[in-house]
Design a binder for these strands. Structure first.
Length: 379
RNA sequence: GGUGGGGUUCCCGAGUGGCCAAAGGGAACAGACUGUAAAUCUGUCGUCUUACGACUUCGGUGGUUCAAAUCCACCCCCCACCA
């Protein structure tokens, strides 16, 4: 193991090593320019260069290994060139550990009505001031290079749940062409930033297969599954995930984008996914829903008004060590700023503990049991 | 003591004869949130287990009217200014 670790220290950026496997679940590590990421991993989302309500030193203390930023948001404000002049996003945001940036592909989906898709790219209308901007696969690489993210994502089209078969088929081909243009704009060896491709295919297994087939032979550092959790049922999502995950190259990291709930994450790990990101722990923290070892807790409920017990007796985070449910409910009800911070600290701890627990379970060959435990709580 | 203004459902506050169980906001209670246009959004919010329904409400009492939170009379309270 020590020998192994030594070898990995010398491994080039982009190296991905599988250390153990338990069923389809994988334990691994990925080397980036700003450090090693242990997988399976959950990546807190910091869209505009900040994990909302949580400072970098807190994140580090929580054991966050890698966070997300967003190309679209940072390009609009403060501008990727401004960030570049300040030494890149790591320096600008005082986060020395790895950063993955989303390409703006999700905004193709979420800003429907404010964008127009063509072969060349996506024309966006800024949600901030209405100004027009063109995102091409090449432009998006350039922005992410300016941000200097450790893992860059290719521009893709994320199609909505109800999308027609023909549209989805054409869209997946476009996403492939865009991915190849991105790779061409940033050839291997041109820098230390990794580049991940994104598979699409909507809600048809044959299209999912086709998308993977078109991308998997190309030279990307990792492969993502995009376009899931966009309004479909869990059954449908898990069915497609079970179909798609095994098709991805085994020797590269697999990233399920934008997912998910504790149950989704554990299910994904069980199907061989290595990386996850989701706004859920931080957004729900700000909206009063907290994840605990006892299940979901909606902290604003009246029943907690005089509950002096900790939020989660099995959690060792600052929030749970220090405050009562009654106080947390009070802070939330009073809309105190501290509420957002304490709730976010806890939820992120829960999600990070979840993947740490999963890694341990895989290493010890008892992942199925671990998964069953989470299912009992959150299914 | 005089003049003017006012008392509306938990709070603030619209409503001046029927379309009013009564706008809107707040509070309260509950729910949603999945590559963040989200410290956001939705629902309930007089009582009757559900309501197309029934019943009780708009300071008090009495009256006018087919019909009153809305009109009239008297009474009670509050506010402003003047004495």
């Amino acid at each position: 193991m020590t020998q192994n670790a030594m070898n990995f220290a010398d491994a080039p950026v982009g190296a991905f090593e599988l250390l153990a496997q338990d069923g389809a679940a994988r334990l691994g590590r990925l080397k980036t320019a700003h450090g090693v990421v242990n997988t399976p991993i959950f990546m807190p989302v910091g869209t505009v260069g900040s994990v909302k309500a949580v400072a970098p030193d807190d994140l580090a203390a929580l054991g966050a290994e890698i966070i997300l930023g967003n190309t679209y948001h940072l390009y609009l404000r403060p501008g990727d060139e401004l960030v570049q002049r300040r030494g890149g996003l790591h320096n600008f945001a005082a986060w020395p550990r790895p950063i993955l940036t989303d390409s703006g592909g999700f905004q193709v989906f979420s800003l429907e009505g404010l964008r127009k898709i063509t072969e060349e790219g996506v024309e966006f209308r800024s949600h901030l001031d209405g100004s027009k901007h063109l995102f091409t696969p090449e432009k998006v690489i350039s922005i992410q290079r300016n941000l200097n993210s450790d893992i860059m994502m290719v521009l893709d089209e994320c199609v909505p749940f109800g999308a027609a078969y023909d549209y989805t088929a054409k869209s997946l081909e476009l996403t492939t062409r865009w991915a190849l243009r991105a790779r061409e704009a940033y050839p291997r060896g041109a820098g230390q930033n990794l580049l991940f491709a994104i598979t699409q295919g909507g809600f048809h297994k044959d299209l999912r297969s086709e998308s993977v087939a078109q991308l998997r032979e190309h030279d990307f550092d990792g492969f993502a599954i995009g376009g899931l959790s966009v309004g479909e049922s869990k059954e449908i999502m898990y069915d497609l995930l079970a179909h798609t995950a095994p098709l991805l190259p085994a020797h590269k990291p697999r990233y399920l984008m934008g997912v998910g709930t504790p149950l989704d994450i554990v299910t994904g790990i069980g199907m061989g996914v290595d990386m996850f990101d989701c706004v859920l722990p931080t957004r729900n923290a700000r909206n009063g829903t907290l994840y605990t070892s006892l299940g979901k807790v909606n902290i604003k409920r009246k029943e907690y008004a005089e509950d002096d017990s900790p939020l989660d007796p099995n959690c060792n985070c600052y929030t749970c060590r220090t405050f009562s449910r009654a106080y947390l409910r009070h802070l939330f009800t009073a809309q105190e700023i501290l509420s957002y911070r304490l709730n976010s600290l806890h939820n992120l701890t829960y999600f990070l503990d979840l993947v740490r627990g999963a890694r341990k379970a895989i290493a010890e060959g008892r992942f199925a049991e671990f998964q069953a435990g989470v299912e009992a709580l959150y299914a």
